[in-house]
């Protein structure tokens, strides 16, 4: 069943068309990649999907619902979580607090009940804590839960960001260059990790990635953007042999 679908999605910044007529269809439990040279408009697609940018034209359907132009925090509430290309953790909060914050959107108590610590609130807080600890264990960060987020090494910060995104109970996870700055060994572990969380949380994953080994190894379907235009889509094998893709990446004489 189709989970996230876009139709004729276009974004213009003044005279520049960053993304033009982008159409995609992601089915449940799929792992889909979005690749393209620098400046192709990949992150712009992500920003439109998550409500950061309003599309100039076109529409986005999530879980059978038109979500075009709704606010970013509402998109997250519906079940689309994301990570960022340049890690955006809450630097001065502890590792555990970073994940706990992402539970806040599901909190069913208002601020008064929270300050009064009603039994209902305490139950929710306990549930948040347990869920967050479980997620931290999943990404192997439970032993550093009290450290400040900014004190973690780069690779762990990436994993913390994924754990934080998972804490919002998403149906689909958008990963913006998760393997950036990782060595081959780490990227390999990341591929396994992505498969694991997909199966464990029944997730659909949509990722931007430059690291070809990761993309080809983990994705079942790939979209290729160049200058905002979709130049190819298909399985990794089809993409690898597509002439237009090779042209876009290597250039022509």
């Amino acid at each position: 069943m189709s989970l996230l679908r876009t139709n004729n999605l276009t974004k213009k910044f003044g005279g520049l068309t960053a993304v033009s007529k982008f159409a995609m269809d992601i089915k449940e439990m799929e792992i889909v990649g979005l690749i393209g040279p620098n400046g192709a408009g990949k992150t712009t697609v992500f920003n439109m999907l998550t409500g950061v940018y309003k599309p100039t034209k076109g529409s986005i359907f999530f879980d059978g619902r038109d979500i075009t132009g709704i606010k970013s925090h509402e998109v997250t509430k519906l079940g689309i979580a994301r990570t960022f290309q340049n890690i955006r953790l809450f630097k001065e909060l502890s590792v555990l607090d970073n994940v706990l914050v992402a539970n806040h959107l599901r909190l069913k108590s208002n601020i008064l009940f929270s300050v009064l610590r009603t039994p209902n609130y305490i139950r929710q807080e306990k549930h948040m804590y347990e869920k967050s600890m479980e997620l931290l264990k999943e990404v192997g960060l439970d032993d550093v839960k009290d450290e400040m987020a900014s004190s973690l090494p780069y690779g762990k910060q990436r994993r913390l960001e994924i754990a934080r995104a998972l804490a919002t109970d998403p149906k689909i996870l958008l990963l913006d260059e998760p393997a950036a700055g990782m060595n081959p060994q780490e990227s390999f572990e990341l591929m396994e990790f992505i498969h694991d969380i997909r199966d464990k949380f029944d997730l659909t994953i949509f990722m931007i990635e430059h690291h070809m080994q990761v993309v080809m190894g983990v994705c079942e379907k790939i979209y290729v953007l160049d200058h905002g235009v979709t130049i190819a889509e298909g399985t990794p094998k089809e993409i690898q042999n597509d002439e237009k893709v090779i042209e876009a990446y290597l250039g022509v004489d």
């Binding site: 998550t50 925090h73 997250t76 955006r88 607090d97 539970n103 806040h104 601020i111 610590r117």
Partner: peptide, 26 residues
């Protein structure tokens, strides 16, 4: 009580990074 609770964490998240806080559904 406010700061140690869920709302306090949300407020501090806004202080730390508005874009990320909004992406986390706040």
């Amino acid at each position: 009580l406010l700061i140690k609770g869920s709302y306090g964490r949300a407020l501090m998240a806004i202080r730390e990074d508005e874009i990320a806080a909004e992406a986390m559904g706040i």
